[in-house]
Simulated assay, not measured.
Amino acid sequence: MAAPGTRAVPGPVPGGSLRFAVLGDSLSEGVGDRVGGAWRGWAALLAEGLAAGGAATEVRNLAVSGALSADVEGEQTPRALAFRPHLASVVVGVNDTLRRTFDIGLLARRLDRVCADLDALGAVLLTACLPDPGRMLGLPPPLARPLARRQRSVNAVVHALSARYGAVHLHLADPAWTDDRTLWSADRLHPGERGHRAVAAGFHELLAARGLAHGTPPAREPAEPAPTRADALLWLATAGTGWVLRRSRDLLPQLVLLAGAELRHWADGTGTAPLDARADAALAAALAATMGR
């Protein structure tokens, strides 16, 4: 296990290239940044500035929209290990918070195994904490609070694992990211081109500070025309509607139950304290079990 900030990315062998594996969900797949009819995203933008002198960077983007931590561990990680990356990004967790089966202890163990396996190969890890979807969607408090509580727990696990494995960590849950709506696409959950460029530039700056990025930083200003209001409305009426319907089958029933618990505690005068304490206890147990091994 590498001490934080001490590992150097191996240089590409003659005739070879720097290998960058991308694990995660729609954020890393590139959703929100469409170029030439396909998703591009922050990882592809970052890859352009990793190596100096025009040296190649081979990107293996394994991220899939809707992926859970179980998918990253069971499906994406074996493929990443076979690729033997020099760099590997692991950014996942929001979809776990949207499931009835959310279990912070299970998520922590999965992410720890993923990070440990990649770290054992000598890969430098890239991680990020993420904004909670309830805030991004502007949900009313009884619906937003349960999601915020879950995302805070996920971010705490990611912070702990990032420190453990010396990961390059980007704070995407900070207000500077979440409050700037020019960074986000029409769905309010995925970055637009400006947002993906900001993520790429943020990672590049952190990598360069460690001496791990040697190329030109990604440009921050969009190269593609910004979506018009008509484009946004069309997305919401077509692809956006499909996204809502898919999520409603597993998210909405769970959110109704969680909101009901919130309202019951408010009605009996206890507020959110018991629910907060329960989440804190589950997080503490998850961190103790994971970090104590």
Rank of each mutant, 00 (worst) to 15 (best):
E58V: 11
L147G: 08
S17V: 13
L236Y: 07
C115K: 01
G260H: 15
A38C: 15
H169S: 08
E58R: 14
G15Y: 10
V35M: 07
D174M: 09
S248G: 00
H171C: 08
G260Q: 15
A123G: 05
L143Q: 15
A167W: 01
L81D: 02
A277L: 06
T77Y: 01
R109E: 10
A281H: 11
A261T: 05
V199E: 00
P175H: 07
V256M: 06
A200G: 03
T272C: 15
G271Q: 14
L27P: 03
P217M: 04
L111M: 12
T216F: 05
P142C: 11
L130M: 07
A82C: 00
G202L: 04
M291C: 03
A208I: 14
L189N: 02
V168L: 04
P146Q: 06
W177F: 14
A160G: 10
L170W: 01
W235Y: 15
G122W: 00
V13F: 15
A3H: 14
R34G: 05
A43M: 04
R246Y: 10
P253Y: 07
L106P: 11
R210L: 14
G240D: 10
A261C: 02
R110E: 05
D179Q: 14
N95T: 12
N155Q: 10
T272A: 15
R113Q: 06
R220A: 09
D179R: 14
F83D: 15
P131Y: 11
A176N: 12
R181Q: 09
C129G: 14
A38L: 15
R152K: 09
D268S: 13
A239N: 14
R79H: 02
D25E: 06
A286N: 04
A284G: 07
W42S: 02
R246Q: 11
D33G: 01
T228Y: 01
A128K: 00
V256E: 12
D280A: 09
D132T: 05
V59W: 10
L126K: 02
E262Q: 06
L287Q: 05
H86K: 10
L258E: 13
L172M: 12
G292S: 09
E75Y: 13
A173T: 10
A279M: 07
L125F: 01
T290P: 03
A200Q: 01
G166W: 05
N61G: 08
A208R: 15
